[in-house]
């Protein structure tokens, strides 16, 4: 993939950060507004995919980036499991125990552990989709 014209590159440079910000907003407000880890993770992956499509793959050292995204994926799912078993440390023998204090519903810091779950699911989904896309792109340029 060669990359597109300078117009597309400039517009992408302006917008991809804001798309990333929007994805983070969707993830963080998953317990208040429609959205959550899945939708936000896919939008975050979309911002990176936009950069790769616009700038071409020579712009990034992609092999390294693919390893990093796989690493993030593993870290995300591991933290998710760790939080799920986290009740054991507080001597509560329930898997997926909502162990943080609840707070008042409707605030950003509420719903106990659900926002934290959302963040880790967002990391996992974003890394998974990014590595799927990069695998296809690298496979295409291989031979």
């Amino acid at each position: 993939m060669k990359g597109m014209t300078i117009i597309v590159k400039n517009v992408t440079a302006l917008l991809s950060g804001l798309i990333f910000l929007y994805g983070c907003y969707i993830v963080l407000h998953g317990h208040l507004t429609p959205g959550g880890g899945f939708a936000g993770g896919i939008i975050i992956a979309g911002s990176f995919i936009l950069l790769v499509i616009a700038n071409g793959i020579q712009y990034f050292r992609l092999n390294k980036e693919k390893e990093e995204s796989s690493l993030f994926e593993g870290a995300g799912i591991f933290c998710f499991l760790l939080l799920a078993t986290g009740g054991l440390f507080l001597a509560v023998p329930v898997f997926f125990k909502n162990l943080l204090p609840g707070g008042t519903p409707g605030e950003l810091l509420s719903a106990g552990i659900i926002p934290v779950y959302n963040i880790f699911i967002g990391i996992e989904v974003a890394a998974a989709l990014l590595s799927i896309f990069l695998a296809f792109v690298i496979f295409k340029t291989e031979d």
């Binding site: 959550g36 899945f38 896919i42 989904v125 998974a128 989709l129 799927i132 695998a135 296809f136 496979f139």
Partner: peptide, 20 residues
């Protein structure tokens, strides 16, 4: 359905990888 949609995307991508 929310979980099923994401799984559907993953399996579609896997099938496309096999096809290519």
């Amino acid at each position: 359905v929310l979980t099923a949609i994401v799984i559907g995307l993953a399996t579609t991508a896997l099938l496309l990888a096999i096809a290519i």
